[in-house]
């Protein structure tokens, strides 16, 4: 395509083509952004994911409830003395994902275990009070969690996640 006329001002010509090409690339990329961004959660979904408060009074010792926060099940267990002792007597170093029970509950509220009820293997919901460790048992591929929600056996790589929460009073927590 190099002809006599363009050879006269090679730099000007090249600059023009590069500038036009660059502008097209920038414009194209900028146009793409809204099409990607729209896939993210919309404003109403984000607003609906606001923190929730849960009253703990109705949960008797040894019982647990399941609440939903941001579309995820959250297990809140009122653990018995036995369950707490079980969780604290295992040597931490023997666990696949070493973590103390103390690190997974709020100080002074040792009886309350709050975990995201989603198996860390592939996302099924484990069943509470089942399995060899009196904790959670995931029926999908057999992961077993203990009374602290820590992985003890099976394919799941990590402990059940602890969602962000705090105690607003002794009998009420806010999740989120």
């Amino acid at each position: 395509m190099t002809t006599a006329s363009s050879a006269d001002h090679p730099t000007r010509r090249d600059f023009l083509f590069v500038a036009t090409g660059a502008a097209a690339a920038v414009g194209g990329a900028a146009t793409l952004w809204p099409f990607v961004s729209q896939m993210n959660p919309d404003a109403s979904t984000i607003a609906a994911g606001a923190p929730i408060e849960v009253d703990l009074t109705p949960i008797a010792e040894g019982q647990d409830i399941k609440v939903f926060w941001r579309g995820k099940p959250i297990y809140i267990s009122h653990r018995t003395k036995k369950q707490i002792d079980e969780a604290r007597s295992v040597p931490v170093s023997s666990l696949p994902d070493p973590q103390t029970d103390q690190a997974r509950v709020k100080p002074g509220h040792d009886q309350w275990l709050v975990v995201v009820g989603i198996c860390t293997h592939l996302g099924c919901i484990p069943i509470a009070h089942e399995g060899n460790y009196d904790g959670f048992f995931c029926p999908c591929h057999g992961s077993q969690y203990d009374t602290s929600g820590r992985i003890r056996q099976g394919p799941a790589p990590t402990n059940l996640a602890v969602p962000p929460y705090q105690f607003v009073s002794d009998s009420k927590i806010q999740i989120g």
Binding site: T3, L16, F17, A19, T20, A23, G27
Partner: peptide, 20 residues
Amino acid sequence: VFLILFAGLMYFTKKKVWAE
């Protein structure tokens, strides 16, 4: 702002290409 600049660039590019 972008489109006006871009259309201007396209115009001169087009002129250059067609000059040949």
